[in-house]
Design a protein around this nucleic acid. Structure first.
Lengths: 200, 200
DNA sequence: ATATAATGGTAATTTCAATTACCATACTCA
DNA sequence: TGAGTATGGTAATTGAAATTACCATTATAT
């Protein structure tokens, strides 16, 4: 049955993603994956061509999920501060998720090996979110609520503060991961500084 | 002569650092290094114990250089804006240097393998710079020039904006590296937003 | 100057992991 | 149901790279 084949592929993708995100692509062997899923190496070569093919499918799949979430973001020009805060909470939430951290970790590790996949991830993920926010900022400039400024750049700066607050500890092994609740104050502070910084 | 031994070690360190920064630790073989320096593998095993030992020396050496530079930063409480700008230019300059980018790249790649070295890098590099800035901000708060706020956090936010402006393109393969001249406007914009955001 | 120790080079050795070969089994469709 | 095809499992094969063995050479110190 085709159904079983799909289940098997899914199972492999799930297991491989966990391993790749945890240990990186290069440090995960085909055998490691099979040890989790059962079956045999042939399942991977039949289903995905080779190890790199498996990675491609995983990155595509996970970045598509992220980009889908980003598209759902809603902003309200009549409530600038709340909108920014909600956006920032969503962002923080997303950057804290293990799959996202794993995705970033892996892409940082393997960007030299797969430059195209890294670019695709960037465009469907971080860039899309930045565009979404910059559009909102542009509307608020048109409104007269904000000073005219290069909107994409402002959006990038805002997002950098949020993301780095969460990721710098992870990627340099310099602090324990925290929960969104613990972060809330910091996120609010970011919004406050940013808003003071850019509003009329 | 001991002199020759040191020269040989230095030569190996230089060549290995270039390769590690360019291709990463795991993807550089001992033979790759020897191909550049001449001599034989034994030089590496005699001089550094093994491949990891070589990496340790490199990370120590390069992070010490960075931390030395950071210590030289000068601030002037009487000229807040210029001080921040000068600090930001220095920061940008530093984040753009190939050795620094290489160091970050490699540490991101291998943090799982060498968590202690990653932490050491963080403490001697980014953390030290952040402390330096936060001390200055604290002074300006005491002065009454800035609103009271958690100073280390403010400093982190400021640095995140500068660093991410430069590094996000590199690490996700999403844009060409730029020069400090091209960045100057963006750095000025960061300072402007930040200062508006935090000053009384 | 020569016995002893350190150093360097070449060629194993070992390990690990991706990929492939080959055979047995299970499925498909007439 | 049975010929032909696809799939899965086990066991090669291959290649890369770290580490080590061993011998030759050079340096050191009395």
């Amino acid at each position: 049955m085709t159904k079983n084949k799909i289940n098997k592929k899914d199972k492999i993708i799930k297991a491989a993603a966990d391993l790749f995100f945890e240990k990186g692509f290069s440090n995960t062997s085909i055998d490691d994956i099979i040890k989790v899923t059962g079956g045999s190496k042939r399942d991977i070569y039949n289903g995905f061509g080779n190890k790199s093919g498996l990675l491609s499918e995983i990155i595509r799949l996970y970045t598509d999920r992220v980009s889908h979430e980003v598209r759902l973001e809603r902003f309200d020009e009549n409530d600038l501060e709340s909108s920014l805060k909600e956006f920032a909470y969503g962002l923080a939430h997303s950057y804290m998720r293990p799959e996202i951290i794993g995705l970033y970790t892996m892409i940082y590790k393997e960007v030299k090996l797969f430059p195209d996949l890294a670019l695709e991830f960037y465009e469907k993920g971080p860039m899309l979110g930045t565009l979404k926010l910059s559009e909102f900022l542009q509307n608020c400039m048109n409104n007269g609520q904000l000073n005219k400024s290069p909107n994409y750049k402002l959006a990038s700066f805002f997002i950098s503060m949020i993301r780095d607050r969460i990721h710098s500890g992870v990627f340099l092994n310099s602090s324990e991961p925290v929960s969104l609740e613990e972060l809330k104050e910091d996120v609010d502070l970011v919004v406050e500084i940013f808003l003071n910084g850019v509003k009329k």
